[in-house]
């Protein structure tokens, strides 16, 4: 009993934040669920109408699917870009490592509106890509790159790249040097070591990064709306329009809950599969 009360005293400093979270985080989310169960924006009758409305209309499902697809594509591109950077980091001397760390941290810390703005400059009609292509005579007229799906995917992959690079570097640093040296001693080529030793061992880091980038890309309101443009409607913009534009409060509440469950569901599922895989590796 004494032990117990001592443990409780030790946790006292956490209580103010616990109370704050209860009233300004837990309660609001419960309210969000409650309000999504009303049939009309006037909050008169209750029912599952908002959810039925979501599932019943193909447009809603397409918006959700496109948003999740965007996350998958962005995270895959970021993964391909980040791996060589991680390998270079591990092989680099201390100064090289410091430079790479700063190259990763600077965009991570720079405002997302600023990073998005950079891509508007790069992809715009008179932007870098068009200027270069016209100057080299590869294109005879400027191409539309801004306000396209491809442009949006590329911009988001670059913008979220640091989230992928950090966990990959972390897991590469943890590899026991004896393993690669043993493979080398047994005559394996560098490529063989990469594919049979390094990649499998860093899979957890890659999956962690993949999930971070996925979650960041699907919710990236600013980049989606400014680089993708108003014609590509994805969940964040859709929620915003329904709430602030047409004030469909119950429907916007239902939309944000469906979106939240979808994102957390995918993150949890991928995480669970990767943990199972890891147990397999440990057992082997």
């Amino acid at each position: 009993m004494r032990m117990r009360s001592e443990a409780m005293t030790g946790m006292l400093p956490a209580m103010p934040l616990a109370v704050l979270f209860l009233f300004s985080f837990v309660v609001p989310l419960l309210v969000l669920i409650f309000l999504s169960l009303f049939r009309t924006p006037q909050f008169t009758e209750m029912g599952f109408d908002q959810y039925a409305r979501f599932v019943g209309d193909g447009y809603n499902l397409k918006v959700l699917f496109d948003t999740l697809l965007l996350g998958v594509e962005v995270a895959l591109i970021a993964l391909v870009l980040a791996y060589p950077l991680g390998l270079a980091y591990v092989a680099a001397p201390p100064l090289g490592r410091t430079i790479i760390t700063f190259l990763i941290l600077l965009p991570l810390l720079t405002s997302s509106v600023v990073r998005t703005f950079a891509w508007i400059v790069i992809l715009g009609r008179e932007g870098i890509v068009n200027s270069a292509m016209l100057a080299f005579g590869l294109w005879d007229q400027p191409a539309r790159l801004l306000y396209t799906w491809g442009g949006m995917v590329l911009a988001l992959a670059q913008i979220q790249l640091p989230l992928m690079a950090l966990p990959i570097i972390n897991s590469l640093m943890r590899i026991d040097g004896n393993l690669t040296r043993a493979a080398e001693g047994l005559g394996a080529s560098r490529f063989r070591i990469l594919f049979t030793v390094i990649l499998p061992l860093t899979l957890p880091g890659a999956i962690a990064g993949w999930l971070l980038v996925f979650a960041a890309a699907v919710t990236a309101f600013i980049t989606q709306t400014l680089v993708g443009g108003g014609r590509i409607i994805l969940m964040p913009l859709y929620i915003y329009q329904q709430a602030m534009g047409v004030q469909e409060w119950p429907f916007s509440a239902a939309l944000s809950l469906i979106f939240t469950v979808a994102v957390i569901g995918i993150v949890a599922a991928v995480g669970a599969v990767s943990r199972r895989y890891m147990r397999g590796v440990d057992a082997a």
């Binding site: 309210v31 969000l32 979650a215 929620i239 944000s256």
Partner: peptide
């Protein structure tokens, strides 16, 4: 609980506070 704002899409949280 304290880490969960990182997992939850923040728009849902913003909307819930507004409501």
């Amino acid at each position: 609980l304290f880490m969960s704002p990182m997992v939850l899409p923040a728009m849902a949280f913003g909307l819930s506070l507004l409501l």
